[in-house]
Nucleic acid binder design. Structure first.
Lengths: 219, 219
DNA sequence: CGGGGGCTTGACGCACCTCAAGACAAGTGG
DNA sequence: CCACTTGTCTTGAGGTGCGTCAAGCCCCCG
C-alpha cells in the first residue's frame, strides 16, 4: 500500500521528506502551508530545547512524546496515533522529545499560519490537558494492574473500539508511559492472559476478551 | 485587611458571596462581567459532573483541583495560588472537583463572555498542559524525596522565590498531589529537616535553607 | 485544662523493582 | 537451509521503598 522499501522502514533513525504540497485541507477543517515527512523507527521529530511552533499530525504510524531525568529515567507523557495532533507548546522552545515509534508519516505546519489558529487549537489543547490530568490519577494512585487495564482500554477506544489492539510500542515504552518497569508490564500481561481477560496473538497485538472485567479493573 | 470574621474563615464548608461588580478589568488585561465569592475552608467550588464554562481566579487563599477513584483514592492534579486561574474544561461538564483549602476569595466569570476569549485562554491552557505533563514525570519516575523536593521548589517559585514557604494545604493534600501517603510525606520532611536542608518553623510553613541541595535532589 | 484533629514516628508487610537466566523471533552469513 | 547473532520479551528469585497499621505527640481551640 505505501511505497516504502524495507530499508526505509527499518529506518536507521533517518527521515525521508516525501512531499511538500501547499494548502491541502487539514482533517480538522483548516488550510495552511504544510508538508508530509516520513520518519523511520526511533527517528527524532523534535527534541527538548529546539525551537517550537510547528504542529504535527500523524498520518500513519505512532509517536511517543517524553521527558528525561538527568540519570536517564524517562516518562512518556503521551502516545499519538493516526489522526492525532501534537507539538503544542506554551514556550518558544520544546520542553519534550518526540520520536516515531515505528515507520511514521507526519504532516507538519506552522501553528501561526493556521487560519483562525487559536479557535481550532484551544479545544485540542483542552482535550490534551484533560487527558494529561486523567493520566496523573493513573500514575499517582493506581496499581500496576489498573494502569495496564486503563492503557489497553484507552488504546482500544482510540483505535475504534475493536477488541483487536495494535501495540506499536515496545514493553519499555509501555512501562515508561505507565511508570512501571518492563518486567512488571510483562507480568501483568501474562496474568491478564492467564485469567482469560485478554489474548496476546503476537507480541505487538492484544485482544480484549472480557471487556467488562477489564473496565472494572481500571477503576 | 480583609473583613472576614473568624467564623467565616472557619467556614463549615459554606461560601459567602461578597460582591458582584460588573466589568472590572481582569489582571490579565480583559474585561467582562464577573463577581467575587468567598469560600470557607473545604468548601466546594465545583464538582465533577456539574456544568462547566466558568473560569476562576484566586484572589487570596488556595484551591485544590482533584479526581477521585470509586474507592476514594484521590489525586490532586493541581493547587492554585493567588493570581492563578483555573476551571478550563474541554467539555461542557466538569471532570474534576475544586475546593478551597483555606478561606479563599475567588473571582469568577463566564469564559464565553471574555472578549477575545481564545486568544487569552490558549496561552494559559498551554501553560497548564506543560505543568501537568511535567508533573507526570514526577509521579511516574521520581522517588518520594525527589517529589517533595520538586514540590517545595515549585511552591517557592510561585510564591516569589522567597525561602519562606507558606503551606496552606495539609499533609494529606500534599500526599494526594505527590502520589504518596501522609506518613511518607511527613518522613521526608523530617529527613530534610534533620539534614539541615529545610526548616519547619510551623506546621504550615517551610523554609529552604540549602537551595542548591534541594534543586540537585529534584532531578 | 482537657479534648480532638492533624502530624510524627516506629514496626512490619507487600507491591513493585532489581538482577539474572532463559525463551522467542527476526535477521545474517556461511 | 541451518547455525549464529541480536534484541526483545518472559519468568523467577530476592531485595527495597513505600504503604499499612498502630501508638503517641503537638497544637489549637473550647
Amino acid at each position: 500500500m505505501f511505497a516504502f522499501t524495507t530499508q526505509q522502514m527499518a529506518g536507521h533513525r533517518q527521515s525521508v521528506v516525501t512531499t511538500a504540497a501547499a494548502l491541502v485541507p487539514l482533517p480538522f477543517g483548516a488550510t495552511c502551508p504544510q508538508h508530509t515527512t516520513f520518519y523511520g523507527p526511533g527517528c527524532e521529530i523534535f527534541a527538548q530545547g529546539e525551537a517550537a511552533g510547528q504542529l504535527y499530525q500523524v498520518e500513519f504510524g505512532a509517536v511517543r512524546v517524553y521527558r528525561l531525568l538527568s540519570d536517564g529515567r524517562r516518562q512518556i507523557s503521551a502516545f499519538y496515533m493516526p489522526g492525532e495532533v501534537f507539538g503544542f507548546e506554551g514556550d518558544t522552545v520544546h520542553h519534550f522529545f518526540a520520536e516515531a515509534i515505528v515507520g511514521t508519516s507526519i504532516r507538519s505546519f506552522r501553528a501561526s499560519q493556521l487560519n483562525d489558529a487559536s479557535h481550532i487549537l484551544l479545544p485540542m489543547t483542552l482535550r490534551g490537558l484533560t487527558r494529561a490530568q486523567e493520566h496523573l490519577l493513573v500514575l499517582g494512585r493506581q496499581t500496576a494492574a489498573e494502569r495496564v487495564a486503563a492503557f489497553l482500554l484507552d488504546l482500544a477506544h482510540r483505535q475504534g473500539g475493536l477488541e483487536q489492539i495494535d501495540l506499536p510500542m515496545s514493553r519499555m515504552d509501555i512501562g515508561d508511559y505507565l511508570g512501571l518497569t518492563i518486567e512488571t508490564v510483562s507480568r501483568v500481561f501474562s496474568r491478564l492472559k492467564a485469567k482469560g481477560i485478554i489474548a496476546l496473538p503476537s507480541l505487538r497485538t492484544a485482544e480484549i476478551l472480557k471487556w467488562k472485567t477489564l473496565e472494572a479493573m481500571s477503576d
